[in-house]
Design a protein around this nucleic acid. Structure first.
Lengths: 207, 207
DNA sequence: TGGTGTGAACCGATTCACAGCA
DNA sequence: TGCTGTGAATCGGTTCACACCA
């Protein structure tokens, strides 16, 4: 069972989400062609993606939706609850706490951190805002493994260092900074201005 | 001059940002090796990326920073101001309007739209919030080409249809929905829950 | 010597073509 | 007949090796 490529994981996640929005019973079937139509790919690729976790399609019928959902939940480890914390309760941090897309996927931000005294001790959308100095202790007590970082560029590396030493294994970083982590820690960057750069490029070099 | 792959554009944008943070004069030089160190790649790749727009490195010295910057600004069409509009002034929309990373890259959101009467006519962070019913007229008068969509999943397709018919060429969509656009329109999706899905996967399948 | 530019080799991912099963 | 699963062919991007230049 090999580790998938980033793009492979992405497509699997996409199938997962499309299944949820398919208004069909769990015991009904969906074909690779249909899944391809919804995700903008081709049927062969969908099949290749799905078969690397064992054969679960039925020739002539397709994939049983319930079975497929269970497989995907298992692949992503969503059967187990994982606590997510967030550092940096600015505009973006608040938006992420309140983000509706997370609820649908059973993600739960269990605590937030900031260094602004006016925010510490308060709640936002049901999530308590803690003193960043309590990061390590709180992470330990919550047994959190995933952190979302939405602090300023200048403090990103420092915050991430603390997260790593507190035992965080995976980090989703929104600060537009190149930060480094030990290789056993997973770091994903979401860089909004680079996304806009891409659009600029495509506009300038449009077909 | 061929169109680059998505990942190629991404790296170019990354080089661009790293140059800004390099505290060195524009007339000094940077080597491909150095650029690779900062961006986490290898020197050969940096050179391959840069040479597809003509030779501008100098053997034995490297790339003149000012020249490289100008080339990148040109590649991304940032020499020309492009007006960006935003639809959906919820938590995420507000965070995007206030996002500091955009300023650094000369991106400017010139108008926002919403359908909430309590928001329409007000300003947020210097950006006026307009009635979504005025979308077409306002886009035309501002000559906007890029739109950021941060509306709910259920209204994403409808809003995007309107944007397309109003002449928008590039869309950055934050709604976790698969939406379709005519093929001449560029659509990029930023899907936050899929980013978390990836972290879940990596955590479950860690090395 | 220290760097760039680039053809060639490599590698992984995508697509094709088709065997096989209900 | 309709759809899956998969080896083979293909494609494109990455890396290597080295020619070349200041």
């Amino acid at each position: 069972m090999k580790r998938l490529s980033t793009i492979g994981i992405y497509r699997l996640a996409l199938y997962n989400r499309c299944l949820s929005s398919l208004d069909r019973c769990d015991h009904e079937y969906v074909s690779s062609q249909e899944l391809a139509n919804v995700t903008g790919g081709i049927a062969t690729q969908v099949r290749k993606d799905l078969t690397c976790y064992g054969k679960l399609g039925e020739p002539g019928k397709g994939y049983e939706i319930g079975k497929l959902k269970r497989m995907l939940i298992n692949i992503f480890g969503k059967d187990k609850v994982r606590n997510v914390i967030l550092v940096g309760v600015g505009n973006l941090g608040m938006a992420l706490i309140a983000y509706k897309g997370f609820e649908l996927q059973q993600f739960k931000i269990v605590a937030a951190f900031d260094n602004d005294m006016r925010k510490i001790g308060r709640h936002f959308d049901g999530v308590s805002i803690n003193d960043i100095r309590d990061l390590k202790a709180t992470i330990a007590s919550l047994n959190a493994e995933i952190a979302i970082v939405s602090v300023s560029t200048s403090s990103a590396q420092e915050v991430i260092n603390e997260l790593v030493s507190a035992g965080i294994k995976s980090i989703l970083n929104f600060a537009p900074a190149r930060v480094s982590v030990p290789k056993e820690v997973e770091l994903h960057n979401v860089d909004l201005s680079i996304e806009l750069d891409k659009l600029y490029y495509l506009l300038k070099n449009s077909r």
